[in-house]
Design a protein around this nucleic acid. Structure first.
Length: 409
RNA sequence: GGCCCCAUCGUCUAGAGGCCCAGGACAGCGGGUUUUCAGCCCGUUAACAUCGGUUCGAAUCCGAUUGGGGUCACCA
């Protein structure tokens, strides 16, 4: 029975790195009809950040990574204490300054077969220093708590970041000391920033909640994270969660550290936005911006249709629609004023105000003055590009359009 | 620095000895469609870190070098 776990500590809001580890664990569990377990590692009281635990759950919920079981280490303190005492009894651990330390046997090599890259990793136990298992405040350290919990909850595979490789010998030593069979370890390469340094706040280390708030779709984020360091082989890269779970295998997780590339995420987000139906997309956009709920439903959908292929994130809708929702600030040159005057005359004579007629007028003015569309855009919206102009003007309405032109002259 | 991990286009990757003078995707560049910008379609630039082995044959196996990363807490 496959049982995996993620073990976040509530000391911050999960970023792409942590979350990708969660995803890989989840996919591995689903692929093998196993269990996906969430364990909150709140054993460092000083570093706990209020709200972090809630954020972890919120992110997992948003992404659909629902845990089958959940544990919290601060509720299991007696368990760790018991086991620390057991180690003392076995003369493997000793007390010093109120803490319980473990001395690793010297002499023997400590090795395991890592599931990533399918290779053997070996340490010399002489290189491993004594370490604390129970702190003087009575809380366990990660080393003790995770080993005890992984064993007690029958974790079969520990899939975690590569930063844990150097403490794995300690864990293995603990397993051996307790007489327990260790799980299979799989150490995932860490995600690097564009500067090839560890992911920092400036780029990908933003909280996953930030990406959601910026208008990224969970499907895009999930797809992005899964192809960062994993490939099903061949050319496939757009996948639904079900496909990922079906295809996922630790065997083809890459051994090298991938670099976070926001451009690919943006592209993927665009792909998923374009895949959405208009109703669904409208709903998502409205949920992000209350103000938009005031716009007439029919017009709103029309705007969504026009904007769909032009958005990389949901939030970009606001900017695309700005020239319609609010009066743009435009200052025109003499030449542009002349064109505005011509547009004014042309538009005034349109009886049935709709995009085709509007466009005919715009084209006429452009032809006469030998100018191109960006000029027209600037006059009407203050920007040189945007949603299709005739449609935009149709939506704004004849009266309002003429009013705007009036002011420009 | 010690220990450990890693190394294919700028980026994500395919590739598990001959199918590879290395394929796909993003980005870039060029063109087409056109109502600007997108989108869509077509084309294009660009990589096996280096040096030694092994082999009839190496991106693929081995070693060294170089480079990058991780870790060295009563943090996880």
């Amino acid at each position: 029975m496959v049982r995996v776990r993620i073990a976040p500590s509530p000391t911050g809001i999960p970023h792409i790195g942590n979350t990708r580890t969660a995803l890989f664990n989840y996919l591995f569990a689903k692929h093998n009809q196993g269990k996906f377990i969430l364990r909150i590692e709140d054993t460092d009281q000083k570093r706990i950040v209020p709200g972090a635990k809630e954020a972890i759950v919120e992110i997992l919920t948003w992404l659909g990574l629902f845990p089958d079981e959940q544990y919290t280490q601060s509720e299991r303190l007696s368990l760790y204490k018991e086991h620390a005492e057991l180690l003392i009894k076995k003369a493997i651990a000793y007390k010093k300054d109120g803490a319980v330390w473990v001395r690793v046997n010297t002499g023997a090599a400590i090795a395991w077969d890592d599931a990533i890259g399918n290779k053997k990793i070996q340490f010399n136990s002489n290189d491993i220093e004594d370490f604390v298992v129970l702190k003087s405040d009575g809380f366990p350290t990660y080393h003790l708590a995770s080993v005890v919990d992984d064993h007690l909850t029958e974790i079969s595979h520990v899939i975690r970041g590569q930063e844990w490789i150097s403490s794995t010998p300690k864990h293995l030593f603990l397993y051996e000391s307790f007489g327990w069979k260790p799980p299979i370890f799989a150490h995932l390469p860490v995600i690097l920033g564009p500067d090839k340094a560890k992911l920092s706040k400036r780029h990908g280390a933003k909280s996953v909640l930030d990406y959601r708030d910026e208008g990224y779709l969970k499907e895009a984020l999930l797809n992005f994270m899964v192809i960062l360091g994993w490939s099903p082989g061949g050319d496939k890269e757009i996948m639904s969660m079900d496909e990922m779970a079906q295809l996922f295998d630790l065997k083809n997780v890459n051994t090298a550290n991938p670099i976070f590339d926001i451009g690919k995420l943006q592209w993927l987000n665009g792909v998923y936005i374009r895949q959405l139906g208009i109703d669904e997309l409208s709903e998502k956009i409205k949920n992000k911006n209350e103000k938009l709920k005031r716009i007439n439903e029919k017009i709103f959908k029309k705007l969504v249709e026009l904007a769909q292929s032009r958005m990389k994130t949901l939030n970009e809708f606001d900017e695309l629609v700005a020239p319609i929702v609010e009066e743009p600030k435009v200052v025109l040159s003499q030449n542009e004023k002349e064109l505005a005057r011509k547009l004014n005359v042309g538009f005034s004579s349109i009886v049935h105000w709709e995009s085709n007629a509007i466009f005919t007028t715009i084209k006429k003015v452009m032809q006469e003055a030998q100018v191109r569309m960006p000029v027209m855009y600037r006059i009407m919206t203050g920007k040189e590009s945007g949603l299709p102009l005739p449609q935009v003007l149709e939506i704004i309405g004849k009266e309002k359009v003429l009013e705007r032109l009036q002011k420009l002259l």
